[in-house]
Amino acid sequence: MSSGTSELAWFKSSYSGSEGDSCVEVAMTEQAIHVRDSKDVTRPSFAVGREGWRQFVRFASER
């Protein structure tokens, strides 16, 4: 992932519970949705286009 992801506004799902240490964090930009491991934010994140993210969320919500 390119540098500069530390400036993003990362957040966790409200479904992650009170402990909140076993989930992913996401940050949204106009171009992409960035995803990272909340347990180790120093590891590289990855980004997916907004349409790809919509398809993923739609797929996951059907399960």
Rank of each mutant, 00 (worst) to 15 (best):
M1T: 05
M1F: 00
M1S: 11
S2M: 10
S2T: 14
S2G: 08
S3Y: 08
S3L: 15
S3G: 13
S3C: 07
G4P: 02
G4N: 02
G4T: 00
G4L: 05
T5K: 01
S6C: 03
S6E: 14
E7M: 09
E7D: 12
L8Q: 04
L8T: 00
L8N: 04
A9W: 01
A9P: 06
A9F: 10
W10N: 02
F11V: 07
F11G: 14
K12V: 12
S13W: 03
S13I: 01
S13Q: 03
S13G: 07
S14F: 00
S14K: 11
S14G: 14
S14H: 10
Y15H: 15
Y15T: 00
Y15F: 13
Y15V: 01
Y15K: 01
G17K: 01
G17F: 04
G17T: 01
S18I: 11
E19I: 14
E19W: 08
E19H: 13
G20P: 05
G20D: 15
D21Q: 13
D21C: 05
D21S: 14
S22Y: 10
S22V: 06
S22K: 09
S22P: 00
S22G: 08
S22E: 08
C23L: 02
V24K: 06
V24M: 04
V24F: 03
E25A: 05
V26D: 11
A27C: 03
A27W: 01
A27N: 02
A27D: 05
M28C: 09
M28S: 11
M28Q: 08
M28D: 06
T29A: 03
E30D: 14
E30I: 00
E30M: 03
E30K: 10
Q31R: 14
Q31E: 14
Q31D: 14
Q31A: 14
A32H: 14
A32R: 13
A32M: 09
A32E: 12
I33G: 02
I33T: 15
I33N: 05
H34S: 13
V35Q: 08
V35Y: 06
V35S: 05
R36K: 10
R36N: 05
R36E: 06
R36P: 04
D37E: 04
D37V: 03
S38P: 00
S38E: 06
S38K: 06
K39R: 13
K39P: 06
K39M: 11
K39I: 07
K39N: 10
K39E: 13
D40S: 08
D40F: 06
V41H: 06
T42D: 13
T42L: 09
R43I: 08
R43Y: 04
P44Q: 01
P44S: 10
P44A: 14
S45M: 02
F46A: 09
V48Y: 01
V48W: 00
V48F: 05
G49Y: 05
G49L: 08
G49M: 04
G49E: 09
R50E: 03
E51T: 14
G52C: 05
G52R: 10
G52N: 11
G52T: 15
W53D: 07
W53F: 15
W53G: 04
Q55H: 13
Q55L: 12
F56T: 07
F56D: 06
R58W: 00
R58C: 07
R58Q: 11
F59V: 09
F59G: 12
A60E: 11
S61D: 10
S61L: 08
E62M: 15
